[in-house]
Design a protein around this nucleic acid. Sequence first.
DNA 1: TTGATTTACTTACAGTGTAAGTTTATATCA
DNA 2: TGATATAAACTTACACTGTAAGTAAATCAA
Lengths: 226, 226
Amino acid sequence: MRRAQVARKSGKTSKLTREVILAAAVKLADEAGSDSLSMRKLAAALGVEAMSLYNHFANKDALLMGMADWAIAQIPLPNPDRPWQDELRARAHNARAVFKRHPWTIQLMVSLPNTGPNVLAYVEATLAVMTNAGFDLIDADHAWNLMDSHIYGFTLQELNFPFAPEDYAEVTQAHLHLIPAETYPNLRAMAERVAAREYDGLHNFAQGVELIIAGLEGESGVLPES
Amino acid sequence: MRRAQVARKSGKTSKLTREVILAAAVKLADEAGSDSLSMRKLAAALGVEAMSLYNHFANKDALLMGMADWAIAQIPLPNPDRPWQDELRARAHNARAVFKRHPWTIQLMVSLPNTGPNVLAYVEATLAVMTNAGFDLIDADHAWNLMDSHIYGFTLQELNFPFAPEDYAEVTQAHLHLIPAETYPNLRAMAERVAAREYDGLHNFAQGVELIIAGLEGESGVLPES
DNA sequence: TTGATTTACTTACAGTGTAAGTTTATATCA
DNA sequence: TGATATAAACTTACACTGTAAGTAAATCAA
């Protein structure tokens, strides 16, 4: 009895490869959160035993790195032949969109060293945009790191925000009593405006993007010491 | 036989309180990494059983939130009576210093909703700096979020960098062959400059801080849509 | 002193990553 | 074709995790 390219247990006919495993892992992490992604659950979703995954990934960290690299590949590469301002702006918004679609990505990017092919291609394309525009290589390196800091930092905070935007006013109203005006006058004033629906409490990603682009435009090459 | 305020098992005489537990948890996380902080190890370090900790913290997440709040308390509060530029700058550098001393902090801050007293005081003081300087409350909210995005994003990447700065040139030299100039011309050029010790590869935290402050100075109140 | 409450301990359970070893399926060569 | 080597899936087992549930000891309140 020979079943070609088949998991032994189930009747599934899909061949178990890095790509198939990664796709299933991404799906599981998107649905249930990356915290609840275990080798056993992932294997079960593939109709396979946990240890079979270790034929394709050295360990769980390698699998997670593969997921991060997969996610980075979802971000359109910037085009080095177009104006750097537009490309940097588009890159920021595209990256944020992907990170919100796959909320586990940033945590993985900043907790495991990642030198996957897609990450390298992404950095290379960004550097190319900047050097093509006349930036010195090192200025270009600082520039993309600056923008990435904003993208990562902003989106991480955004993803961690514990309420849905539409519930925020209501929740704030209910917890106003925890923010006494004597101790927290500014926080209190802001909470009241949120509760009154005069302020949605959402922060402004684009503001930071534009501020950084403008700052890089005005850059003279003389930077303060780190 | 009565021993006042004592762990039953060991001869330790220190009373088990939230503060004592947090201090031990911080110490363990600093030494061994927050990944390897388990309730059993923490309890053992305190000469106590794991389940005893649950009399002081509802669960592990509550303990981790307590640690994050403790860390935030290590950052000096900005002074609302001094120029906002200086205070925002100092806050950024002080925060980064604390996050580097306790590298688990940012991960906790952006993975658990945190409304501990020290976090609230920290935000309140920052808002006060900005509103005292004449910023609208909502502009102030956007401003500190912007700076925090930079602090978090930059420092997370910095902490994740897998090599010690003094080893970077050597390591890059050894891995140059993995960065072919045909595929990655810019990355290759940069790697060569790092390997030749013409560039230390360190990114520039202060550049971003100054860029954001300058951007906020020039802000006219009209922001692009998020 | 008695009773109530707090705090520490013990046991147990379901779940984790993965080392080690075994079995089965596929690919290669005679 | 059949023999053999390699690759991939499976089984078992281990040390560890957070924590629910129940018990015992210490402290506080009357």
